[in-house]
Amino acid sequence: MDRMIVTLTVHPSLDRTISIDAPLRVGEVQTASAVREDAGGKGINVARVLHASGSDSLAVLPLDPADPFAAALAAEDLDVRAVPVRGRTRANIAVTDPAGETTKINLPGVALSSADLDDVIDVVAECARDAQWLVLAGSLAPGLPDDAYVCIIRAVRERLGHEAPRIAVDTSGAALRAVVADGRPDLIKPNDEELADLLGAALPAADTLAEAVHLAARGLVPATVGAALVTLGGDGAVFVSDRGAWAATPPPTRVRSTVGAGDSSLAGFLLADSRGADPAASLVSAIRYGSAAAALDGTQAPTPTDLPTADVPVRELHH
């Protein structure tokens, strides 16, 4: 039986995806062919995919009880634990053209105080007691320090001891640097650009992007993080742990929107891992879910019936 996966989204968003029939022309007027709105934020996106796949999940987020975002979230039929705060959830706008090229504009969200962070920590520690994974995902809300995720990780581990879940972190920039420096997460999920930014240097020279990512990630795994799942867009993904490293490439996919594809990849990986799959099989699951998400409009959560059935080649990487 699945053990619960808990996600935390401290900077949720109403994801508004606008589809246009031609490439975006800056400075000109274009007509949208479709618009959809989804309750989003990286942790919520992960929870939506897990829920759609029948996995036991719980999404934790700060939310003003009077915020209209609550109605959009209720429509997702997720198990949710809201931490009361004051302020209206931000909106993220994505413009997607027929080739799947996506332009995003992310608005600032609700500012959280140190007292709000303490409340979030209390709720997360309570909810994570019986969880297999805790996922800390997305950018930090305005007002939070760069090491907010580190504070959450330490509190959960101190309060739950041997009952603490494994912790996955999907963020970037200063928040990711703080987690890698002081948080010792069990898993991080950057993309290749975020990995290079984390290291403060270009990826090492190598014959392929996967091999370059592997070399770069080896500087982190297992010294400061337990494992790294690095997504590479159309080039697939690489998983690196102390047990080895693997690269996988996606099947041919007609890309409709890349928004949320990385979140779906993480959900696919955790879904397989939580059910006992080995690293290579979990990586294949990540690729299938990420590809399925890219083939859907907006930030729709792929279901098992959306997954591509074509072969996903996996190869082991060596030093």
Rank of each mutant, 00 (worst) to 15 (best):
D170V: 11
E194A: 13
G138W: 10
G173D: 13
E211G: 09
L203D: 04
S139T: 14
D186W: 11
Y149Q: 06
L176N: 05
I188T: 08
W133Q: 09
A227C: 07
L215T: 14
L136I: 08
A137Q: 06
S139G: 15
A111M: 02
L140S: 02
P145K: 10
V221K: 10
L195N: 07
Q132T: 09
A202F: 00
L112Q: 09
S172N: 10
R157M: 03
G200M: 08
A223I: 00
N191C: 14
D147Y: 06
D147K: 04
D119M: 03
T171L: 09
V150G: 05
L203G: 05
S172V: 06
V213T: 10
I167N: 01
L187C: 07
G143L: 09
V156A: 02
V124T: 13
I188M: 08
A217Q: 09
A137F: 08
D207Y: 01
A181S: 15
S139D: 09
D207M: 04
L112I: 12
V123P: 02
V179T: 01
P204H: 05
A201F: 00
V123R: 14
N191Q: 13
R184C: 14
S113W: 07
L134H: 12
L134D: 10
Y149K: 04
A201L: 02
L209Y: 07
D186H: 15
V225D: 03
A228N: 03
E211P: 05
V179E: 00
G143D: 07
W133V: 11
G138N: 10
P204W: 06
V135E: 06
V225K: 07
A111E: 14
S172F: 06
I152P: 00
